[in-house]
Design a protein around this nucleic acid. Sequence first.
DNA 1: AGATTGAACGGTTTGTTGATTATTCAGTTA
DNA 2: TAACTGAATAATCAACAAACCGTTCAATCT
Lengths: 213, 213
Amino acid sequence: MAEKDSVREQIVSAAKKRFSHFGYAKTTMAEVANDCSMSPGNLYRFYPGKLDIAEAIATEDYSKHLEHMRKLAVTPGKPAPQRLHDLLFEELRRTYHKLEKDPRAYEMALVISRERPEFANWMLHEERKILVELMDEAERRGEFVPENKDFTAEMIQAATMKFRYPQLWSKLTLPKLERELEGVLCLLLNGLCPEAQAIAEQRREQQKREAAA
Amino acid sequence: MAEKDSVREQIVSAAKKRFSHFGYAKTTMAEVANDCSMSPGNLYRFYPGKLDIAEAIATEDYSKHLEHMRKLAVTPGKPAPQRLHDLLFEELRRTYHKLEKDPRAYEMALVISRERPEFANWMLHEERKILVELMDEAERRGEFVPENKDFTAEMIQAATMKFRYPQLWSKLTLPKLERELEGVLCLLLNGLCPEAQAIAEQRREQQKREAAA
DNA sequence: AGATTGAACGGTTTGTTGATTATTCAGTTA
DNA sequence: TAACTGAATAATCAACAAACCGTTCAATCT
C-alpha cells in the first residue's frame, strides 16, 4: 500500500503542474497519465475521477492553511479578540491573494465549489473546529466565554460569509474588504449596545495593564 | 410630458405581463410594442433599452417594499432591537418567497444583478438609509446609539449579506436561514462578551416592565 | 491472478450556420 | 417639424455536426 500511496502522490504532483500551468479544463487525463508513464485507464485505480484529483490537491493545500490557522487561534500572549481578528484576516488575505494572482486557482475554486459542495462544507466545518478551539482557549484563560461555542462559531461564520470567498461574490478590493471585516468584527465583539462597548473598552484597558505587568 | 409618462406606464405594464408570463428572455421588444400598439422603434423614445424596462419594473416593486420597511424601522412601541429584527426578517422572507415561488422573478433578479450592478448598489443604499432612520429613532427614544450610524449600517449589511439574496448563494431552506439570521442578529446586538449579554438581558427585562406599565 | 493497457462508449464541448431579435435610422406621416 | 414607422444592421441565440475527452472494460501482459 505504501507503493500505491507513492503513485497517488506522483499523480497529484503531475496534475498539480498541469492544472496550474494550463488550467483544470485544458488538462486531459491522458496528459496526466502520460506524465506518470501510465495509461489513462490506470489512473482510475488510484482516483475515482479527475475531480477527485483536484480535490486531493485542494485538500492538501487547505490542510496546510488550517495548521497555520490553528496556531493563530491559540497564540500565547494575545487576547482572544485579537486572535479572532488575526484568524479572520488571515483567511481573507489568503484566499484573496490566491484567487487574485492566478486565474487557475480561481478556475479550480469555481469547479470544486460547483461540483463538490461537500468540499466547501468540509472547509467550513474544519474552520469551525478552530474557532471552537479558540474559544476553549479563551475559557481556559478566563477571557470571553460564549455559552454555546459550536453555535457561536457557526454564527461567526455566517456573519463573515462575505469575506470567505471574496471575489466570488463582491468585486471589492482588498482594502475595502479589510475595512469592512474590521467593522463587522468590532460589531461582533462589542455588540450594538454602548454599555457593552464601554465594558469591552474597560477590558481592553485592563488587558493592556496586565500585559504590561 | 404627462402624456409621455402615461405611455411609459403603459409600456411597463405590458412588459410586466409578458415578463411574468413568459420570462424576460422569451419576451421580445416587438411583442411589447405590439401590446402597446406601436412600432418597436418607438419604444426607444421612452426607454433606452429592454433592460431599462426591467429595471423600471424592479424599481417600482422594490420601492413599495422600501416603504413597508421604513414603517417597520420606526414602529412605535417596539424597542430598537426588535425593530431591527423585524426589518431583517422581512427582507429575508420577502426575497426568499419571491425567488422561490416564481422562476421568472429569479430570472429577472439574475439578469439585473449581472447586467446592472448599480441597481444592487442602489438597493443596498436605500436600505442603509432605513437602517440609519431606525438608529435615529432609537437615539430619539434613548435606546442604543452607535457612534457612527452610517458606518454601522454598512456593517450590519456586511454581516447579513448571506441573508440578502438567499438562494443566489447558499441553498439553505428558509427555516435554516431564519435560525442563522436570528443567531447573527443576537451576536450583533449583544456582542461576544458575556458581560454585555448580561446587560442586554437586563435592558430587555426593563423594557418589558416599561411596556407593561 | 492481479496489474495494466488502450480501444470503445457516451456525454460534453466546440465550431459553424442560419435564424431571431435588440437597436438604429432614413424615411413617412400628421 | 415633431412623432412615429419599419426595414436594415449587428449582435446574440439555437440547432446541428464534428471533435474531444472522461470513463469503462474486455483483452493483454507479467
